[in-house]
Design a protein around this nucleic acid. Structure first.
Lengths: 198, 198
DNA sequence: CCCGGTATTGAAACACGTTTCACTTCGGAA
DNA sequence: TTCCGAAGTGAAACGTGTTTCAATACCGGG
């Protein structure tokens, strides 16, 4: 991302941190970033587009943290739970920003489907790595069982985050229910494997 | 819901069926329903509020269909999968409407948290009924295992629907991945039960 | 029947995402 | 250096969700 676009996204993040989705007024973003409104719209097709770019920035952060301190644990369940707990705490550390990013992501503009899919793929890679207990790089592509598991888990996580954003429950619920769900699904996957090979 | 409010919601549904979320212009809703804009705003605090009311109407439909033809199957997995398939097809039958309702639901205004929670509770009841293979009325409240299962499953379903709405995948993917996930989680729940009693 | 308050109306105003446009600036090719 | 096209600018305009307000209609209690 070139310098100007990055500055725009960073400005959006700052405004979102302070006042959430509504505080990201594109006129303000443009003027704070020192560009004209038209320039902003040349780089980002919409407010959602801009905030999804911001979400991608935040995801780099998560990937960096995971690389530095990979989720530990003796079992797959423990590692995956630890990963989601880390991701949840990282994202919810700045609640206003998190709500803004989630709202943009949840809006699900079909025009941004490609971006959203790429975003999900990065998340899946991190989950697969936690599941296997080793780094994501140079790893074989996930098998069918892993694919099913990671897709389902990231979906549960996403819905939990939206529930948090909508005031349905708190951060602890996100982490706790996520753990329960990981345990359940990993158990199920193991059991399915057992049945298939029997 | 009194007559005037119902007429407003029905008008919103008609407009959404034709042109989706953006086609529900509140000025149009008001004039087509034969009320002033201010009257609409006395009943519904926002466009989202209105569309969530519409979602509740649609859910009555689902409940009616489930009551008339409860999901069949010899196993819990089959019944729950059948239920979600039925619900998915029912909702996605009118794609524009579905996208509009999902968008409103996903926006997750904290002011509407109560409504959203009540909505989710109704869905959970239907899933629990399918899981048990009997009607939802006069049934004992779900136990912890059932609660975990139904929450996780409705979350996966919700995320899948949002993915569909965002153009990430088609209706078949929603139904198929939902089935896979149901199987996995029911297996996991049974296995967990086994481990706990052993 | 009359009164008082509440709901409804119609219309205007406001905010903000988005678009448009005429003008300027900039960077590289000739 | 000059020129061209792309990018940027500033400002205005537009659409739609939301709010506001004065005027009017409605309705139950005296």
């Amino acid at each position: 991302m070139e310098e100007r676009a990055r500055r725009i996204v960073e400005t959006a993040v700052e405004l979102a941190e302070q006042g959430g989705f509504e505080a990201v007024r594109l006129r303000d973003v443009a003027s704070h970033a020192g560009v004209a409104l038209g320039t902003l719209y040349r780089r980002f097709s919409s407010k959602e587009d801009l905030l999804i770019a911001a979400f991608e920035l935040e995801t780099f952060d998560l990937e960096r943290r995971v690389a530095q301190r990979p989720p530990r644990g003796d079992t797959a369940s423990e590692r995956v739970s630890a990963f989601f707990a880390m991701a949840t705490r990282g994202l919810l550390r700045r609640p206003n920003l998190a709500r803004a990013l989630l709202k943009a992501h949840a809006a699900g503009d079909p025009q941004l489907a490609k971006r959203t899919a790429a975003f999900n793929a990065r998340l899946h890679d991190l989950v697969v790595a936690a599941l296997r207990g080793r780094a994501a790089e140079a790893a074989p592509p996930p098998n069918e069982s892993e694919r099913l598991l990671t897709h389902a888990l990231t979906r549960v996580w996403f819905a939990l985050l939206l529930g948090w954003a909508g005031g349905l429950h708190g951060q602890a619920t996100v982490i706790d229910e996520m753990s329960d769900c990981v345990e359940l699904m990993v158990l199920g996957a193991e059991q399915k494997q057992r049945l298939a090979t029997a």
